[in-house]
Computed example of a mutant assay.
Amino acid sequence: MLKKFIKRFLPSHQKVKEQKVLSIFGTLLHDPNLWHLNRRSAAGAFSLGLFFAFWPIPLQMWLAAALAIPLRVNLPLSIATVWLTNPFTMPPIFYGAYLVGASVMGLPPQDFTFELTWDWVVQSMETIGPAFLLGCMICSIIFSAIGYFSLNFLWRLSVSKAWKERVQKRCPKNKLVK
């Protein structure tokens, strides 16, 4: 079942509560709805995490946690999904977002080389920045919606399959359920 698969990879709510980074949320983390894993909370959390994963800013996890609390979606899943963009996956994902933005703006993709300097960041925001930020926004919205509906569909499919298996076990001669 999908719920068991997701739970296997999520940290316990005690581990998340102990994170010093999340201490700014105080007692808000004690809401049991933030730790409950059902179809609605999982799909919402997955969507929320994907939404912030495409934002090229630091502290994406804080933003995902800050919105998971009022939306009452699964907090650990929303935080974990943000890590889709990690130091290894960021370059290809953000380059893809830049290409999306450039194609939407009708600009030819520019060749550039990455430098780890503040001057390069400032200079690149003037040249490739608008296309990059537009691409990040578009990817953020599209992948968030795809993630929500996909996880919702997979969850329903998983529950339906488990239900049919239970019915088949109880009534093996029942030919109505296949």
Rank of each mutant, 00 (worst) to 15 (best):
L77Q: 05
S103H: 10
P76L: 04
A97T: 13
L99E: 06
K164Y: 10
T81E: 02
F149K: 01
Q14I: 12
V73S: 03
W163D: 11
K178D: 00
V100T: 13
K17V: 06
V121T: 12
T81L: 04
P11L: 05
A68K: 04
R39S: 13
K175H: 11
F9I: 11
F51M: 13
K173Y: 04
R170W: 12
R40W: 08
L107K: 14
W35E: 06
G135A: 03
P130Y: 03
K20Y: 08
V73Y: 05
I141E: 06
C136H: 00
L157I: 03
W35T: 13
D31S: 14
W118E: 12
P32L: 05
N152L: 07
M61I: 15
F52G: 02
A43C: 04
P92D: 07
L48H: 00
V104D: 10
P130W: 10
M90V: 07
A145G: 15
E18M: 04
P87W: 00
K173S: 13
R39P: 06
D31G: 05
R40V: 04
F25Y: 12
F5H: 11
H13M: 14
K164F: 10
K161Y: 15
A97I: 01
K15A: 15
A53S: 15
P11R: 07
I6T: 10
R170G: 15
V100Q: 01
P91D: 03
S103E: 07
I6G: 04
D119H: 11
K3R: 15
Q60L: 08
V121W: 12
W62Q: 13
F46E: 08
S41V: 10
W83G: 10
L84C: 13
I142P: 04
W35L: 09
N74V: 06
E115F: 05
N152E: 11
F132D: 12
L29T: 08
G44D: 00
P11H: 03
G44I: 09
M90K: 01
T27A: 11
M1Y: 07
P108D: 15
N33P: 00
R166N: 15
L10V: 05
V167D: 09
Q110C: 00
C171V: 13
F46H: 04
A97D: 08
Q110R: 13
F143I: 09
D31M: 11
A65D: 08
K173C: 08
P76N: 11
S160H: 14
L154Q: 06
C136L: 06
A68L: 04
R8Y: 12
